[in-house]
């Protein structure tokens, strides 16, 4: 059985790796200008050719952004689910993405009004503040609300308020900035420069490492806080670390790509079913890879389905994510009824 499990995990990781590579290649090749794979390969190796600018300047930064941020979303969803012991917790559902978006929008409008552009780092910091704000509200509420369903409702409400205020801010922003702000607030992986990709990679990979190192206490925490404490987990520190990591990951996503829905719930669930386990030491890397694959696929669809018109990434992730979430809820209900 131990042997079987190891084989299963190895096969799953291999499959995820293969899917990731295939989607990377497809994303490089497919687009307004359709490039043969051989040409893509040559451009990647030699960095020269007629279409080098498309591959190196546009497609590569975009797909790396999609892979990194998709992974970050899935991992932050998994962390939140572990924290709240609830499978439908996620950065979007709990209003964390929306409040990060609100603070970023406010900062953007305020600084654009003074004629200064916000740096990428500034955006991340603003998003982190916003994420922590709603996380704080949710934690306060979770002391009072023992029911997980009510907590989720609370998060959804926070999300609505933040979105409404963001819309108001966008409405009153000066005309020239609206287009920019509006596009961002819908969510997109496009228009990334290499500098952005570098920063995304540093932040996301550092947080990923942090999450991986927390996998041992997370495993204990899955049995409940009481048991975790009796096994020697420093609960206060563990919770603080988990919240900070979740905040960093969802803030990074929101700052660079805007709010993206359902990846944080759907991907961890798909990974758990695929690996048939919820062990954090496997789930953290699996969610990262799975989130990358999921977002690369969604971005490919968003770019190409109605080309040259691009869809917002959130509409595509929702179309694929919602059925997964519904399937999960129904399956859980069935299990509870002991069918």
């Amino acid at each position: 059985m131990e042997q079987k499990r190891r084989i299963r995990s190895a096969v799953c990781f291999a499959a995820l790796g293969a899917a990731l590579l295939a989607l990377l290649a497809l994303n490089l090749a497919i687009g307004t200008a359709r490039l043969p794979l051989r040409e893509v390969w040559n451009i990647l190796l030699r960095r020269e050719g007629d279409n080098a600018a498309i591959v190196w300047g546009i497609r590569l930064p975009r797909l790396l952004t999609a892979a990194l941020l998709g992974g970050a979303l899935a991992v932050s969803g998994f962390l939140l689910q572990t924290f709240f012991g609830n499978p439908i917790a996620g950065p979007f559902v709990l209003g964390i993405s929306s409040s990060a978006k609100l603070v970023v929008a406010l900062v953007m409008v305020a600084s654009l009004a003074r004629g200064a552009a916000v740096s990428s780092l500034g955006m991340v910091v603003a998003a982190f503040c916003g994420a922590m704000l709603s996380m704080g509200l949710i934690l306060l509420a979770s002391r009072r609300l023992k029911s997980m369903a009510l907590l989720i409702v609370c998060g959804v409400m926070i999300g609505y308020i933040c979105s409404a205020v963001t819309d108001i801010v966008v409405t009153f922003a000066s005309d020239s900035n609206i287009v920019n702000l509006h596009n961002w607030s819908l969510g997109s992986f496009s228009g990334k420069e290499w500098r952005d990709v570098g920063m995304e990679a540093v932040i996301v990979l550092a947080a990923l490492l942090g999450a991986f190192l927390l996998s041992k206490p997370m495993g204990a925490y899955q049995l409940g806080e009481g048991y975790a404490r009796s096994m020697g987990v420093n609960i206060r520190r563990f919770r603080a670390e988990l919240i900070a990591l979740t905040g960093v990951l969802s803030a990074c996503v929101t700052a660079f790509a805007g709010p993206i829905s359902f990846v944080g719930i759907a991907v961890p669930h798909l990974m758990k079913q695929m690996f048939r386990t919820a062990k954090p030491i496997l789930m953290v890397p699996a969610c990262f890879l799975g989130g990358g694959v999921f977002c690369l696929l969604c971005d490919l669809i968003a770019r190409t389905l109605f080309a040259p018109t691009e869809l917002s990434i959130s509409s595509v992730t929702a179309v694929f994510g919602v059925p997964v979430v519904l399937w999960m809820l129904l399956a859980r209900q069935k299990r509870k009824e002991g069918v």
Binding site: Q222, L223, Y227, S230, M231, G232, K272, A278
Partner: peptide, 19 residues
């Protein structure tokens, strides 16, 4: 040290997913 000397069986029914 505490965890190495004391273990607990608590009330309630823990429901860990897929364990």
């Amino acid at each position: 040290d505490m965890a190495r000397s004391t273990a607990a069986v608590l009330t309630g029914r823990p429901a860990p997913e897929l364990m």
